[in-house]
Nucleic acid binder design. Structure first.
Lengths: 214, 214
DNA sequence: GGATGTGAACTCTTTCACAGCG
DNA sequence: CGCTGTGAAAGAGTTCACATCC
């Protein structure tokens, strides 16, 4: 099945597998079966095998997958085989937390710059060693090999910030502002609205309290 | 189409519509067509109509939807028609940012308590007026009409925290820890792994830079 | 006229069952 | 013998086109 359109849902699951594989590799397991990986990450084993089958034969029948090798392959597919440099726009509460967030490194992602419009913040050094720069100078990211942006600004400032980022050559944006944003087709945006995720939780909670388990 | 199984994807979109409707209602628009709402939130108009059709006839042909009434209906469907009280577990960088996050109020969600295990943090009052309590006393949420939890603890502490929350009667959990967590069927978990979202961005970025627009 | 609401067609995803290989 | 890889079936979700109603 090597040459095929890859389902978006498969792409969404690849980072999950990658995370699981890296934890497993750290434990010193050389091989892992689709079943073990399935138990570990919470996906069915046949789903995992099907997902991998879109890209080639990564496993060995009767044995399983070489954890290190498979992790490397997934990184290549996700284009995480080179370090990706990202810029943060909007250093408020959420932005600061993202700067300090240790989880990005696992995927080879690195926040190397931060911008804000607040004069009181500009010039400050964050715990990560990143100095907050004036958003008016956002065009400088063009010369700094930065392809990704994280935007953590208020909703009303989001579209404007994005427009500037696109002009500065940014190719992918992770948007925390709770709104739709428009970009040229060549730019990919993933919007992550935290409050919205919490908001759909009550729907799944039955009103009357039953008490069965597992 | 009133009596049917509701697609999960529809439930995922309802908060998007709700947000759009509330902004629209604030602008003073009494009615909105599926087309206008579509333009505003970035979903197709037929998708919107189909989604609403699962729940009943909310609109008026030739006119559109009554913004206020529709917002009320969606809130009822999502069970957001009562204020939902939530507890935060883990007051690190991300946890603090979530406490200060203004977006929850829009959906009638309210973080009324925060817990941590760090003795240096316990007793501190956060900017929101919430006092950090000792996680050892998490069982007290049982008597405080709290049904939702947000967990922002390290991966290794997540499952333990969740087990305690479930024992304390929590019904829905928004999990920021990058791992699978196991809960009884009656409890709903939504995991939101921030680094993972950023990690799938490079996949969509072409290696060679093309430059076509919109 | 101008919008909604919806069966039917279509497309995308998941699940299954098992052939194939180490 | 065990585990992968995959065609084929089943299931979900999206798109369309248009009947329907204000």
């Amino acid at each position: 099945m090597r040459y095929h359109k890859i389902p978006d849902e498969t792409v969404r699951r690849l980072p999950v597998y990658l995370r699981g594989l890296m934890v497993s590799a750290n434990q010193g397991d050389r091989y892992i079966s689709s079943q073990s990986l399935a138990d570990f990450v919470g996906v069915n084993s046949w789903q995992i095998r099907k997902d991998f089958s879109y890209f080639g034969d990564f496993g060995t029948r009767g044995v399983g997958y070489d954890t290190e090798k498979l992790a490397r392959e997934i990184k290549k597919i996700l284009r995480l085989d080179v370090i990706r440099r990202a810029v943060l726009v909007g250093v408020g509460d959420l932005g600061s937390a993202l700067l300090a967030y240790p989880g990005f490194g696992v995927y080879g992602l690195d926040i190397v710059a931060a911008f804000d419009i607040d004069p009181k913040k500009i010039g400050q050094t964050m715990n990560h060693g990143v100095i907050i720069e004036d958003f008016a100078r956002i065009d400088t990211v063009k010369e700094r090999d930065i392809s990704l942006a994280i935007i953590a600004v208020p909703r009303t400032a989001a579209q404007e910030a994005v427009d500037q980022l696109v002009a500065a050559g940014i190719k992918g944006i992770l948007n925390f502002a709770p709104c739709k944003i428009s970009v040229p087709k060549r730019v990919k945006v993933i919007t992550l609205d935290i409050a919205m995720e919490l908001a759909r939780l009550p729907y799944y909670i039955p009103r009357a309290g039953r008490t069965d388990d597992s």
